[in-house]
């Protein structure tokens, strides 16, 4: 699947410097292969269907949550509302179902709300540029606060909601879920489809190209009649929708609503984007790269878990590795060469 995404990226001969792209992507693959080999050598049971399934499942959640982060990074923004929308969706869905909405309707409501929060975010923050991350943080707080007010009206638990999760939703993203009888949860397929579609859209549609244009030079993009407002609003809406989706799928995974499920995604989405090689300053990178970043991050974590590292130690090791990983292919040129 990754190779398909990447191929569409490379296939777009004009896309961006093919050589550079090849380089960063092949290094990404090497890194991934190296981690897999290390895992196979060091951790018994690392190479097993179970482990592959769990890696892909966790990667799918992170991957879906990182869609919005990647798109935002491409225009030089960061979306810090992602964890809050994930958490909000994760508790709003069950409480809507408790309130009597049929599950599909409730899901659509949550998705629409997530998209709306994202749209607000984009519409309000496109003027702020570098400061946009604080706007998204503020909106995230506001959204999750509002959701919790709603869910806790008439109950004591604001942050956790218990409701029976329908079997099909659980099957979508539970560890032992089945995809048409095949032994892996459908969420992996959902991620794969979204990744391929997104990779293709980014390189073959006017919208995709205008996103890169806005990220590269706002004024030059404006001269081509590209509306920066539209681009920001759309990508933030996508980010909101994807976060809401991730939150709902996480409900199937865990079985109960908990507002804090999104918290780890605050900086892991950023880390995945960065490890993939998308510049946080905008204009260069893509979702294919993020897919690689997500896989590297997930496999690395799985390896560290296999080696018996505690959560804090895992976090420290991942942190330590980010700089060297990024340094391999995303060093900025020396200032002497930028004059």
């Amino acid at each position: 699947m990754i190779s398909t995404v990447l191929n569409t990226e490379i296939g777009a001969a004009g896309g961006s410097s093919a050589l550079r792209k090849h380089k960063s992507i092949s290094i990404g693959f090497c890194l991934l292969a190296g981690l897999l080999i290390l895992g196979a050598l060091l951790v018994p049971g690392f190479v097993s269907p179970q482990n592959a399934r769990s890696i892909l499942l966790l990667a799918a959640f992170l991957g879906l949550a990182s869609v919005g982060q990647t798109l935002c990074a491409l225009v030089g923004a960061l979306d810090l509302s992602i964890p809050y929308i994930i958490g909000g969706a994760n508790i709003l869905l069950p409480s809507l179902m408790v309130a009597g909405l049929p599950a599909p309707v409730a899901m659509i409501v949550v998705l629409v709300l997530g998209t709306l929060v994202g749209a607000c975010n984009g519409a309000l923050s496109f003027r702020l540029q570098g400061q946009a991350l604080i706007m998204s943080l503020g909106l995230g707080f506001a959204a999750v606060g509002a959701v919790q007010i709603y869910t806790s009206l008439g109950s004591q638990f604001g942050g956790t909601v218990f409701a029976p999760v329908p079997g099909w939703l659980r099957n979508l993203s539970a560890f032992n879920g089945k995809f048409f009888g095949l032994p892996f949860p459908p969420v992996i397929v959902i991620w794969a489809v979204i990744a391929v579609a997104l990779g293709w859209i980014m390189h073959n549609t006017w919208f995709g190209r205008s996103l890169y244009a806005v990220g590269g030079s706002r004024t030059a993009a404006a001269r081509l009649g590209i509306s920066e407002f539209k681009v920001w609003t759309v990508i933030h809406s996508v980010s909101g929708a994807m976060s809401a989706l991730t939150g709902m799928l996480l409900l199937g995974f865990s079985g109960g609503g908990f507002v804090g499920v999104g918290d780890p995604y605050l900086f892991t989405t950023v880390a995945a984007v960065v490890i993939g090689g998308t510049s946080l300053l905008g204009g260069a990178g893509g979702y294919g790269a993020t897919v690689l970043g997500v896989l590297v991050l997930t496999v690395l974590t799985s390896l560290l878990v296999g080696l018996g590292l505690s959560f804090p130690a895992q976090q420290a090791v991942v942190g330590l590795l980010i700089v060297p990983m990024v340094a391999i292919y995303a060093r900025s040129p020396h200032i002497r060469n930028q004059i």
């Binding site: 880390a271 804090p312 991942v318 942190g319 700089v323």
Partner: peptide
């Protein structure tokens, strides 16, 4: 190393967050 500062400080963030919990659980 010439890596974007925000990436360096993100790395610092993750490392220290982990280490802090290792120093004091």
């Amino acid at each position: 190393v010439r890596v974007a500062p925000i990436i360096v400080t993100l790395s610092g963030f993750l490392v220290l967050s982990g280490v802090n919990l290792m120093v004091m659980s």
